[in-house]
Design a protein around this nucleic acid. Sequence first.
DNA 1: GTCTATATTAGGATAGAC
DNA 2: GTCTATCCTAATATAGAC
Lengths: 203, 203
Amino acid sequence: MTTEELGQRRPRGPYAKSAERRETIVAAASQVFASHGYRGGSFQDVANVVGMSQTSLLHYFPTKRDLLLAVLEYRDTKLVNESGVPLDEGIVCEVLAQSEYNVGVPGLIELYTVLASESISPDHPGHAYFVARFGNLRAGYAEGFRALASEGRLRPGVDPDVAAASLVALWDGLQLQWLMAPGEVDVPAALRAYFDQVLTPTP
Amino acid sequence: MTTEELGQRRPRGPYAKSAERRETIVAAASQVFASHGYRGGSFQDVANVVGMSQTSLLHYFPTKRDLLLAVLEYRDTKLVNESGVPLDEGIVCEVLAQSEYNVGVPGLIELYTVLASESISPDHPGHAYFVARFGNLRAGYAEGFRALASEGRLRPGVDPDVAAASLVALWDGLQLQWLMAPGEVDVPAALRAYFDQVLTPTP
DNA sequence: GTCTATATTAGGATAGAC
DNA sequence: GTCTATCCTAATATAGAC
């Protein structure tokens, strides 16, 4: 029996409130993990943000690992603007729009960058998530570049798979530099420059 | 009075041995921090690697912060092949050679990637180091691209400063993906492809 | 210079009252 | 569902013997 099914019978009952509380906690945890990472952030930190006791959080998330996984899911569903596979309007608009959106949401880039690198360690609870994510991103953008190639918009010598991995890498790396020194780096502008070098100009 | 000055009077005395021990510890700490990050790695972990007690390490490095700073210095002076400002032989050879060297040294890329992202937090002991490092890298590579521009090797529309930041970003991002899924990403090949897109071919 | 013993703090997690 | 009290573990760091 899912939460949704119960919700149909009791729309404004205790379950709705519980789901709200859950989301409040996850939002707070996102802040904390963005600032100090998964290892550096504590239940107590999250509890301080939401104004609850540390042990009360354990009622919603029995382990810290559960909390992190909820944060990662929250990032994908609530925080990020991603519209699934980046193919509809073309990879260029999609990427540029998302990159501009990202810099406007405080903590969003930080959360992603911090957790991704922490997850390099195979025993990190976020490892599988990020391995899959990078794989999906590369596959999706490779598809996008192939679509452009079929329109003759790819410059000669450009490999769609290499370009896909490079686009993801460039984006991540730019965001890291931006976090270290905002004002020194313009993420969307640099991504636009990359597309200019890889694609033929639209007439 | 510096260690070197003392070393001249007592070349194989206790100071030489102490320096050796110090380097052994720093090397071990590099491993530990590479695997679990600065926050996730402990004095005990390092002590286990070198085969000493945890408290003995404190004789060489009074605080964990001191140990990290020693690791960062060690990385620059011993581990990495960097030949200062990348101008002599040209930015292309320099970057490609270094990127190939990096993937051959176990833990080197991991150490760098993990610590860089952890250092986003301004109160992280490595923060200042990485802010300076990114700034220096951008400045150095911008210089390298400008040198190429003066030879007419830069494609029209390519901004040396944007290209410099992008090169650093691309490199870092590729290394991150490589750590997550080695075999899926070829770092030197992708960097070479980037140069191909930004520079005019050599005759 | 290296050790044991220990202080101190903090983190994740459990038990159980209300 | 929220709390207090508590356990257990681990981490940084200190004191002091040898």
